[in-house]
């Protein structure tokens, strides 16, 4: 079966090469390096820079998948949210495949049959030694975590336990990383609960010779039932930051001659959208339910709010948003 899988992937890659000039070849992954995780940040290469906007912006992803370029949503549905697997691909055989990097050092497709046998049994290691293509790290005050880039796992650590496998790490914005996590969570929790298998493929897409990916195509399909099924493209953008995809260099969008056009600002909440906050009636702070301050809050101080942002501000306008989880911008 593995032989057929390799043949299929090779054919898929041949199609990819026609569009992007990538020269990649699948090999079994060799996990020699033990290091850290998807959310690893680094402050090296701090620098102030103002870039000249050049014609290096991503376009292959939009052409290949028939989607618009980033317009404010973290991801776009591809192929009506149906992955490009076939029923013949469905197997319970355990496999984990990573493409060789191309001549520019860029990662290719990562493909695995996610199951409990692949999931990590040890804590994540340090991956700060890895420098994927396009790694020009900078920190910005407009980014909650500060650092612009993460070493983004194609197949998340929580799914396959890969640490510093350089064929599985690309330069991804914090924004793209956070967009990928909910999909990864969905697959991980499904496998843990059902002990089933999920065909899972992540394809980084590069335009021309760019060192920074346009984004990643994420595909997943559960083998034993129909519970997991998605096909989405996550944009490698960062609102408020101009990215030079050719090199990975970056600057505040407002510092570019055109004011930047590689990404757009987003708002935390939309009109009428239901939000959930945990309020500390003592400190008068509002937190997201997942914030550590919320989970450790004494019941005597805790007040839960579920409703619209407008109603929240009307009733609890005296509360301040937590500076750590930043549930919303203070009006």
């Amino acid at each position: 079966m593995k032989k057929y899988l390799l043949i299929f992937i090779s054919l898929l890659l041949a199609c990819v090469l026609l569009f992007s000039s990538c020269v990649v070849e699948f090999v079994e992954e060799i996990p020699d390096e033990q290091t850290d995780n998807q959310e690893e940040n680094s402050d090296e290469n701090q620098e102030e820079n103002t870039l000249t906007v050049v014609d290096n912006q991503p376009h292959v992803a939009t052409e290949r998948y028939g989607i618009a370029w980033y317009e404010g949503d973290e991801y776009a549905l591809v192929n009506d949210n149906v992955p490009f697997f076939t029923n013949a691909d469905k197997t319970t055989e355990v496999f984990e495949l990573y493409a060789d990097k191309d001549t520019l050092g860029r990662c290719g497709v990562a493909y695995a049959n996610i199951c409990e046998a692949l999931m990590p049994t040890e804590e994540r290691g340090n991956i700060s030694s890895v420098k994927p293509t396009g790694w020009v790290q900078n920190s910005y005050s407009v980014i909650k975590s500060g650092s612009l880039y993460n070493r983004s796992h194609l197949i998340a650590f929580q799914l396959a336990g890969e640490n510093a496998n350089t064929a599985n790490l690309i330069t991804g914005t914090r924004y793209m990383n956070e967009a990928m996590i909910p999909f990864e969570n969905m697959v991980a929790d499904y496998v843990k609960e059902t002990h089933h298998h999920v065909l899972y493929r992540v394809t980084p897409v590069f335009t021309d010779n760019n060192l920074l990916a346009d984004g990643v195509l994420m595909e997943a399909l559960s083998v034993e039932d129909d519970d997991i099924c998605f096909c989405v493209f996550c944009y490698n953008v960062q609102p408020g930051i101009y990215l030079e995809y050719l090199t990975g260099n970056n600057c505040l969008a407002s510092e570019t001659p055109t004011g930047g056009d590689s990404s757009a600002d987003t708002t935390d909440t939309q009109d009428g959208e239901t939000v959930s906050y945990v309020l500390n009636t003592s400190s008068k702070k509002a937190h997201l339910p997942s914030c550590s301050s919320a989970t450790s809050m004494a019941d005597s101080n805790r007040l839960d709010y579920v409703g619209t942002q407008e109603n929240f501000l009307a009733v609890y306008g005296a509360y301040s948003p937590c500076g750590v989880c930043k549930p919303y911008q203070k009006p």
Partner: peptide, 23 residues
């Protein structure tokens, strides 16, 4: 509540007129 973030295209409507009585 699962206590995790997942993708979603269907959302909980506003709980207008409802009061939380237990957690």
């Amino acid at each position: 509540r699962f206590g995790r973030s997942y993708p979603s295209d269907v959302k909980l409507p506003p709980l207008t007129g409802m009061e939380k009585v237990q957690t």
